[in-house]
């Protein structure tokens, strides 16, 4: 018997409510082993991260959108890099966008804290891979 793995703690940082709805729906239909939290922009997610760090409740995976109001994905990464040394946990950050602008892709790949750049809509096997890598 293989022991049941604890579900991956996944944060979605995205202002597109339809996309987030779909993602949640898909995960529940496919019964992927993950627990979802949703934040509508970078600022909310950063605040939550600081708190989660104190509560030892940090996420395993962050699916981060680029274009968001208040604090976008780039700014989030900037803030995240500041927090990261204080966290004792490996957090995999995936930038997720429908932008096919090569500049965006290049920029994302140059941020060492970013694990990968995924195109919207994210495919189910990509999601599986993301959660399996945890």
């Amino acid at each position: 018997m293989i022991a049941e793995r604890s579900p991956a703690n996944t944060w979605i940082v995205d202002d597109d409510s339809i996309y987030v709805y779909g993602l949640k729906k898909l995960i529940s239909i496919k019964e992927l082993n993950t627990q979802l939290s949703h934040f509508v922009n970078g600022e909310e997610a950063i605040c939550a991260l600081k708190k989660a760090n104190e509560d030892h409740n940090l996420p395993d995976v962050i699916l981060l959108d680029i274009n968001m109001p208040v604090m976008d994905g780039w700014e989030f990464m900037h803030e995240f890099a500041k927090i990261k040394p204080r966290t004792g946990k490996k957090i995999a950050v995936y930038m997720v966008s429908s932008s096919v602008d090569l500049n965006d892709i290049h920029r994302a790949k140059n941020i060492s804290e970013v694990s990968d750049y995924l195109f919207k809509p994210v495919r189910i096997n990509q999601l599986k891979e993301v959660f399996d890598n945890v």
Partner: peptide, 14 residues
């Protein structure tokens, strides 16, 4: 392309 893609992507998704 980004804006159309985000809509069509969602449409496909739904």
């Amino acid at each position: 392309s980004h804006n159309l893609r985000s809509h069509t992507g969602n449409l496909q998704f739904m």
